[in-house]
């Protein structure tokens, strides 16, 4: 990644940006709620305080990463995390429409793209086996209310 080359402590800067962004989002989300006072706290009191601390900590980390040498971000590879996340999202989209069996096979197929060692034959076998096993365990055994097939 290119961000690592100019910055002294890119892991600090990265975490700082992430943490400050979450804090800022929190402050924005509670902007319309009543903060109240210390004696009678409103719903926004604690979230505002914590989100404010997050922003400050994030800014501190960004500053530290820019000024001091620190750990660099280890190389990011989008493929494994991307495939795993995509597999989960596709599973969520399909389980209620296509049923458990197809959703599991799809999950396994997409997730296998994130692995460096993969073969289509094995993926298919694993997918079908896991679909059958999970249908038996969760739907038949544990009564999870979900359809099996479209």
């Amino acid at each position: 990644m290119s961000i690592g080359s100019h910055v002294r402590g890119s892991a600090d800067v990265g975490s700082g940006v992430l943490i400050a962004a979450i804090g800022a989002a929190g402050l924005w989300l509670v902007r319309d709620l009543d903060a109240g006072s210390a004696a009678a706290m409103g719903p926004a009191y604690m979230p505002t305080a914590l989100a404010g601390i997050l922003v400050l900590l994030g800014l501190f980390l960004i500053g530290r990463g820019l000024v001091l040498h620190g750990p660099a971000i280890a190389a990011l590879r989008a493929r494994p995390i991307g495939c795993v996340t995509l597999a989960f999202v596709l599973f969520a989209l399909t389980i209620e429409r296509l049923g458990l069996v197809l959703a599991v096979i799809l999950l396994v197929a997409v997730a296998s793209l994130g692995s460096s060692e993969r073969s289509w034959r094995e993926t298919l076998v694993v997918g079908v086996a896991l679909a059958a096993a999970s249908a038996l365990t969760f739907v038949v055994g544990l009564n999870v209310p979900v359809r099996l097939l479209p």
Partner: peptide, 25 residues
């Protein structure tokens, strides 16, 4: 490469079964 598939499938169905909503996934 087989183990991680088991982890993912069980996680996905397990999370779904908490409230039976895809939101949790």
């Amino acid at each position: 490469r087989i183990l991680f598939q088991i982890i993912l499938v069980v996680s996905a169905i397990g999370v779904y079964s908490v409230n039976n909503t895809t939101f949790e996934i």
